[in-house]
Amino acid sequence: MVVVLTVVSLIEGRPPYLSPINTANVLDQTGIVGILAVFMTIVLISGNFDLSIGAIAVVVAGFSLMAEDRYGVLVSVVGGLLIGLAFGLVNGLLVQLVGINAFIVTLGTQTAIRAVLLIFTNGSSVQARGEGLYDLIGGNGSPLNLRIAAVVIGLVLLVAGAASMRQQRRRSQPIDLRTLALLVGGATLSIISWLVFPDEWPLSKQVYVMFALTILCWAVLRFTIVGRRLYAVGGNGEAARLSGINVAAYKIVPFALNGCAAAIAGILYAGRFGATNPNALTGIELTVLAAAILGGTSLFGGAGSVVKSLVGALILFVLGNGFNILNLGSNYQGLIQGIVIIGAAGIYVIASRRGLGSGTQREGKDTVGAAQSDSTPSEPQSVRPA
C-alpha cells in the first residue's frame, strides 16, 4: 500500500508520501490505537476480549484533567493508572471467577463506566487550565535520526542472518528462506536508509511510548516463560491447568494490563488535547479489534503477535492517510477499509484451513504407517515373569 500511494502521489504531482512529516503524522495518528491493539492482543491470546477500553480511557482522561489542576501532574497520572488497573481487575474477576461471558461483562462495564463520567461532569466537557500534562506527554519528543537508526537495524539483521548461516553450515544444512531474508533485508535496509532516509524524524512522544510498550510486550511473550504459559492457557486451558499453570491468574492479569493500557491511552489523549467529553473515543474498541484481526490474532485464543497487531493498526491509518492525500471522499473510505478487513480475515481463515488440512493428511499418513508397521510380523521376544 505504501508503494502504491508513493507512486500515485508522484504521478499526480503531490507531496511525497514517504516524507518525514507525513510518516511521522501517520505514526502519531496510530499511537493510541496501536497501544491499545498491543494489549488487546494479550487479552485475545488468553482467550478473552475487552470492549470497555474506550470507556476506561475517556474516564481516565477526564480524571487526569480534573486532578491536574487540583493535585498536580503526578497525582493525575498515577491516579489514572490505578483507576484503569481497578476497572481491568473488575472485568477479569467477573469473567474468570464469577464465570460471566467476557462479551457481556465488558459491554456492561463499557456502558457503566461512561455513565460515571457523565454523572461527575453532568454531561459537559472537561478541560484543564494548566499545561502540565501537555508538557509531560504532549507534543514532539527529540527528533530521531532515522538514517542512523535504520542502518543500525539493518546491520543487526545482517549479523543475525550471518550467524544463522554459519550455524546451518556447521550442521551441513542448506540456507533456509528465513536466513536469506535476514541477509537480503538487512543489506537492502542499510543501503536504502543511508541513501534516502532523513536525518531528523519528528516523532511525537506518544509514538515513542507506543514503540517502547510494543518492544516490551513482544520480548515478554517471545522470550519468557510467562509468554509461553499465556499462549498455552489461550490455546487449551484445561491442558494448561493439568500442567500446573495457574489458569485463573493468566486470565485475570491480561484484563488488568488492558485496563492500564486504556489508562495510558486516556492520559495521552488528555495530554494531547487538554480536554475531553463523555462521548470521546466512542467506537475505538472496534478499531482496535480490527487492527488485531488484521495482524492475524485469533479470536479464539492461543495465537497472535503484538508486533503484527501494531502493523494491523498501521494498515488502517496508512489507508486513511492515503485517502486524505488522494482526496478520496469519506464515503468511500469506510467501504474500502471494510473490504480490506474482511479480505485480510478471509486470507487468514483460508491459510489456517490449508494448514489444518495438510496437518491432518500428515497425521493420517503417520497413522497408516504406524498401523502398517504394527501389522508387520516381528521376531518373537522372550517373556520374563515379573
Rank of each mutant, 00 (worst) to 15 (best):
T6D: 04
V7I: 13
L10D: 11
T23G: 04
I35E: 02
M40V: 04
G47E: 01
L51W: 08
A55T: 08
V59Y: 13
A61L: 05
V73N: 04
L74Q: 11
I83A: 10
I83P: 05
F87L: 13
L94Q: 07
V98E: 01
F103W: 04
F103A: 13
Q110D: 02
I113M: 12
L117F: 09
I119W: 15
S125A: 14
R129P: 01
G130N: 15
G130C: 00
G132E: 04
G132N: 09
L133K: 15
D135G: 15
L136E: 03
G141L: 04
P143R: 14
A150G: 01
G161I: 00
A162C: 06
Q167M: 02
R169H: 13
S172P: 00
I175W: 00
L177A: 13
G185D: 02
A187V: 11
T188I: 11
V196R: 14
E200F: 07
L203S: 14
S204C: 03
V207I: 11
V209Q: 06
T214M: 12
A219D: 00
F223W: 14
V233H: 08
N236F: 09
G237M: 03
A239K: 10
I245Q: 03
A248H: 12
A249E: 03
K251R: 15
K251H: 05
I252D: 02
F255T: 03
G259W: 07
C260P: 03
F273T: 12
T282N: 15
V288Q: 07
L289W: 01
A292Y: 07
G296D: 01
S298Y: 03
S309K: 06
S309C: 06
A313G: 14
L319C: 12
N321F: 07
F323E: 00
N324S: 14
L326Q: 13
L335I: 15
R353S: 04
R354A: 07
L356Q: 14
L356G: 12
S358T: 08
D374M: 09
S375H: 03
S375P: 05
P377F: 10
S378M: 01
S378P: 00
Q381W: 02
R384T: 13
A386K: 14
